[in-house]
Design a binder for these strands. Sequence first.
DNA 1: CTGTTAGCGCCTTCAG
DNA 2: CTGAAGGCGCTAACAG
Lengths: 360, 360
Amino acid sequence: MPGLLGEYDLRVTARARAASLRPAVTLADVAREAGVDQSTVSRVLRDDHRARATDETRARIRETADRLGYVPNASARSLAVRKTSTIGLLIPNVSGVIYADVIKGAADAASALGYVLVVADGSELGRANDAVRKLVLEGRVDGLLLASGTLTDQVTDDLLGSTGNVVVLNRQIAGKVPQVIEDDEYGMYLGTRELVDAGHRRIACLAGPPDVDTSRRRVKGYKRAMREAGLTVTAGLVVHHDFDEASGYAGMLALLGQQPQPTAVAAASLAAAVGAMAAARDQGIVIPDDLSMVAFHDAPLANYLCPPLTTIAMPLEELGRQAMQMLHRRLVGEPGPAAVTVSDPSPIVVRRRSVGPPPG
Amino acid sequence: MPGLLGEYDLRVTARARAASLRPAVTLADVAREAGVDQSTVSRVLRDDHRARATDETRARIRETADRLGYVPNASARSLAVRKTSTIGLLIPNVSGVIYADVIKGAADAASALGYVLVVADGSELGRANDAVRKLVLEGRVDGLLLASGTLTDQVTDDLLGSTGNVVVLNRQIAGKVPQVIEDDEYGMYLGTRELVDAGHRRIACLAGPPDVDTSRRRVKGYKRAMREAGLTVTAGLVVHHDFDEASGYAGMLALLGQQPQPTAVAAASLAAAVGAMAAARDQGIVIPDDLSMVAFHDAPLANYLCPPLTTIAMPLEELGRQAMQMLHRRLVGEPGPAAVTVSDPSPIVVRRRSVGPPPG
DNA sequence: CTGTTAGCGCCTTCAG
DNA sequence: CTGAAGGCGCTAACAG
């Protein structure tokens, strides 16, 4: 076995580079060595259709390139063709369990379309700002996928203008910013319905920050389910916090402080739900006996919680894939819709053991 | 407030770009507009020391550049100076909770040193291979940080040769590959000692894959603690699985199937520990009453588990930072050590509620 | 202090 | 079918 990662050509090339610290082998080198012109080499190596060079010539060129360990230089090519064939994915917190799927979807699509995908961490505003400037404006990438569910409207709004090389993931934004969204409203509707179907009437919503679009849409879905069931959402039943464990913990405490206590809660994020479960536990409340819970978004982790958490799984991978495809379309000038909502697969609730009938 | 993300200049530039789909404004444009030569513009905009241009000239150039919304083109610059000032970070699974810290450390150091950091997902071998080729070999990045704790020795070995632009994070590799490692052995030693200090004698180890270096070092630490305590590690006491929840679950089941059952387990990864806790629960075993547990690596999640998990926190952020610094040193040709182990902060056990005295 | 002159490595007409 | 020539946008000597 020739090594899992390194295929043959890769290793050879690396060695060639390492051995001689020279500026790497260039097109001219190959041309000289093969006794042809640079442009010819360029053409055959790129399979340029107008280069039906003699089979003999092509073979010789290919062989020489291989032997010398030629690898095209991305900067030079980019400069010449005015594009980099790399696209960036900006994510608020790269290590959020939720993002694994969108990264995978985007990466798959990217590689299928001939791009290389790089992801940038946008957890801090400063860093996000920097990333955008360094990546898009300076032309390190041809386009940007913005998965900043947590940035406020103001931000993206300012940033985007009507640039055609950015597509926004799962944020509904006024104006003509290209965007692909999922039906968060429906997802949360489904999750909440799971709770009303189990017989709950006093159902709370553990929401995200009030000014974040995704949070708003999820709350909307929650409210629709409540309304449809003839349930009223009284003040205090929806509490706004952040999308992390600590916030979920605090939010749950707030919810539990009310009279009468809710018998079920729909959490707008998985991390918050984890925190919420811990809070409940600390208050001596057992799930699902005393309290039922569903969380928005699914991940392996949910299956190992105590108890295993019923979640609503969103088509995150498809989101990433379609965003990438839309970006590509725009980059090559195909028109296409300015916004699509991914509905296949549609949101689905993954039933585990965190919801039961209301107590008593 | 002018928008959180978009500072003024950023927005203006974006607008200028978007408005006119022209090839963006170039150095020549600015020069013409300002009535000076291109090279002069280049110099003042870069603060070239040899360009103590008239204050008046400098001001005019700056103003013109701003007004036109000039942004240097990264490809052109890279081609000219033969470096990109961007470096890549290759991670097996970008969304692992554990990696947040190393990304942060690396990103901080990168930006302090004037680099932009991009991370690439190396979860699949194919993708990792591709990333290396596209990023390093084609010169999209000046160097690579390899945080592929899960790739086998063979891989990295083949890949690296003695190239100077790669540094490996936390893998001990023979040969002269630049590397920064943490003291996983000591960390695991500490975690295991926590267990022996609590009075346990039959302590199991939930290890990672046997051929992965980090796993081996952790097992070594576990064994040392056992030996020092005069405890023998009998067959079956260390079980090898993977670093994820499902593996942890399976591994725990295997451990629990033994006679006599271990009274404590040291897990080599946080994710595996999560799975293991679930397995214990499913078997009616309560932690810490019936079984104690510690896990390698810390993350917010650990605090919200049931019960909150005692972990051993490693200096992950520092690992990322130092790796980046070492890479930089190598890139600029400073000698420096070929391998450093980060020992500050040193591993520390974060005591929560998952360890108690042995039952009975 | 500032302008001139060459490239960096590759692609792309345009001739031959 | 292939070679010659020019240019992508920027930097870096070298003159003036």
